[in-house]
């Protein structure tokens, strides 16, 4: 009898140790990544990063101003195009089409788009936008980001609207409000924090996307906010600088990576805080 207990206990201890080891192992790597990122990124972080243009090869001065501006504009445009479509689609899934066959299909397709490889989105936009427009452009980049934003926002909008209690809608309808006003004035308002969270998460998701920009927005060494031509952007700049032989470029790549990471983490944290407020209400 005792040997069985001993064996069970031994096996349990082994598994527990393995689980602790896994946690330590995983955290070590992830901690290491953040540590290197901050260590190398902070070393090059100064004001000129935000005020000067990306340097030409071999230069020892220069910043990321054009890349940061281009990224910000493209991300903003991408979200501005993608979020309304995503919200309206999510509204349909949660409000009008709750019992339709179409909803199940769209939800399924949307979930697949949600995790589709982002480089495929780049190929799609290349055929759909870059070829007809006759060249790479910031607009194509923004549209590629919008395609990534849509499924994220559809998902969160639907989830958040489904959390709104039905009696609220019934009460509004009983007062004689038309359906669209019930949605706009009651359901949206009740789910507002959640909807904003969804948009923030989508912004965080596309802020660091690189693959779909490689052959849609391309890159630009100079200051340019004309969205019909190539526009500098942070991810592609990092991509190019990492593989370069110049020490200063590599330093800028780390700094740029740190800026992107901080932006993404901030967006995530703000979204999380907003989401929690909604839960405690």
């Amino acid at each position: 009898m005792n040997s069985i207990y001993a064996r069970r206990r031994r096996r349990n201890v082994i598994i527990r140790v393995l689980c602790y080891a896994a946690a330590a192992f995983g955290l070590t790597w992830l901690g290491l990544i953040l540590f290197t990122l901050f260590w190398n990124g902070l070393a090059g972080l100064n004001l000129s990063v935000f005020t000067q243009m990306t340097p030409p090869p071999g230069s020892k001065t220069g910043g990321l101003a054009n890349a940061i501006a281009g990224s910000a504009i493209m991300t903003f445009l991408g979200v501005a195009i993608g979020a309304p479509i995503g919200m309206l689609a999510g509204t349909f899934l949660a409000e009008y089409g709750r019992h339709e066959r179409l909803t199940t299909v769209i939800r399924f397709i949307n979930d697949i788009l949600l995790s589709a490889p982002s480089i495929i989105i780049g190929l799609f936009v290349y055929v759909a936008v870059v070829l007809p427009m006759g060249g790479f452009s910031g607009l194509a980049g923004a549209l590629a980001l919008a395609v990534i934003v849509i499924p994220v926002v559809v998902r969160t909008t639907e989830d958040m609207l489904l959390l709104v209690p039905n009696p609220l809608r019934e009460a509004a309808s009983a007062l004689g409000m038309p359906r669209s006003l019930v949605i706009k004035r009651v359901a949206y308002r009740a789910a507002r924090a959640g909807l904003i969270t969804g948009v923030l998460l989508a912004t965080a998701r596309v802020a660091g996307e690189t693959a779909p920009l490689l052959f849609t927005a391309l890159n630009n060494q100079f200051w340019n906010i004309d969205m019909t031509t190539t526009v500098a952007n942070l991810p592609v700049t990092i991509n190019n600088f990492v593989q370069s032989p110049y020490e200063y470029w590599r330093q800028l790549a780390w700094t740029g990576a740190l800026i992107i990471t901080l932006a993404v983490l901030t967006l995530n944290v703000v979204a999380r805080i907003l989401g929690r407020e909604r839960n405690t209400q």
Partner: peptide, 23 residues
């Protein structure tokens, strides 16, 4: 509003179709 939301929802399907078609 109803048709706007419905069109947006169908837009998601079109996206998938567009991706496959363009590839």
């Amino acid at each position: 509003f109803y048709w706007l939301t419905r069109a947006s929802a169908i837009c998601v399907l079109l996206l998938l179709g567009g991706i496959i078609l363009s590839l």
